[in-house]
């Protein structure tokens, strides 16, 4: 289950600029601070950067950036619509749906939109073609362009559960594969994805397809535990992984041991400091604080450039 060591990082397929995901396992380790600071350092280094805030249940990267007004696109997902005159009430769709989004009531079938994961399986298994695609709004994608920095975020509609579907829509836009007007590929040199916390479906959807994964952790037992889970999750996707220790202090050993055992390099340490917390409270990313933070991010950009040089 060991993740591939970073030195195996392959050059991204021709024609697509490096796509880096930032995740953590544990919440509150500083993913977003790191993602924003890294994006700004890359801009400083003369790059055109796309920052994707994929923490769709609570996007917040924009709070650290003075971005002005955003453009917004509504994102919809498949929802089964059943034609009552065609439906025979055979129950094949009800049987198929793992999420119980379809229910048989006598010879009628009822759809529960908030349980539907939009897999389209019900439509496939219906023997009489009684199911067609409807659409349900799952959230919005907002985007901003500010000089060389392009920022976009997904915001899941309250009560919705389809985080992965919205994250996939964000990725399609980011890769210039979306059909709608929001899909114009921003011309960029580097993409940074700020993933949601955890190691469940949403986090996996956010890191999938990345060329490189940076895991942000903290030197605590919880940080170590969830970092281990995140490394295992990354291994299933065969992503090259490197670790950043945030709030680095004299307990770093707990993380160092794990990284050594898994052969994962630690590429940056951000010292624990009240200064960072104060800046955070004012909506300023730690990269704006000067040394050692600013220099750490400048070095990180150089390091990442080196991976694909």
């Amino acid at each position: 289950m060991n993740p591939a060591p970073a030195h195996q990082a392959a050059r991204p397929a021709t024609g697509h600029p490096p796509w880096i995901a930032i995740a953590s396992g544990k919440g509150g380790t500083g993913k977003t601070s790191v993602a924003v600071s890294l994006a700004l350092a890359a801009v400083q280094a003369g790059k055109r950067v796309q920052l994707i805030d994929a923490d769709v249940e609570g996007p917040n990267a924009h709070h650290f950036l003075d971005l002005g007004a955003s453009a917004e696109t509504t994102i919809r997902s498949m929802l089964p619509v059943i034609a009552p005159e065609t439906c025979t009430g055979c129950g094949a769709c009800v049987e198929f749906c793992t999420f119980h989004a379809l229910a048989a009531a006598g010879n009628k079938v009822i759809v529960f939109p908030d349980l539907c994961h939009a897999c389209e399986g019900c439509r496939e298994v219906c023997p009489v073609g009684a199911i067609t695609d409807g659409a349900q709004e799952i959230g919005v994608i907002r985007h901003w362009q500010r000089g060389p920095l392009s920022v976009c975020q997904g915001a899941l509609q309250i009560g919705q559960v389809l985080s992965p579907a919205l994250i996939r829509a964000l990725h399609r836009r980011g890769r210039g594969e979306a059909e709608d007007s929001a899909g114009r590929p921003p011309d960029v040199d580097l993409t940074i994805v700020d993933a949601p916390p955890g190691t469940a479906c949403a986090m996996m959807a956010a890191i999938r397809g990345a060329d490189h994964l940076l895991l942000v952790t903290e030197p605590t037992p919880f940080g170590r535990h969830d970092l281990d889970l995140a490394m295992q999750a990354a291994a299933t996707l065969r992503l090259p992984v490197e670790v950043i220790i945030n709030r680095s202090n004299d307990h770093d050993r707990v993380i160092e041991d794990l990284c050594r055992a898994r052969a994962v390099p630690i590429v940056a340490r951000l010292p624990e400091s009240r200064q960072v917390a104060e800046a955070y409270a004012e909506g300023r990313p730690m990269g704006s604080l000067g040394p050692p933070w600013a220099t750490t991010f400048t070095n990180l950009v150089t390091h990442l450039e080196g991976l694909w040089a």
């Binding site: 009800v94 999420f99 119980h100 989004a101 229910a103 048989a104 009531a105 529960f112 349980l115």
Partner: peptide, 9 residues
């Protein structure tokens, strides 16, 4: 999820 739906059915 959907315990009520299952039970009802």
């Amino acid at each position: 999820h959907g315990a009520g739906i299952q039970t009802a059915q």
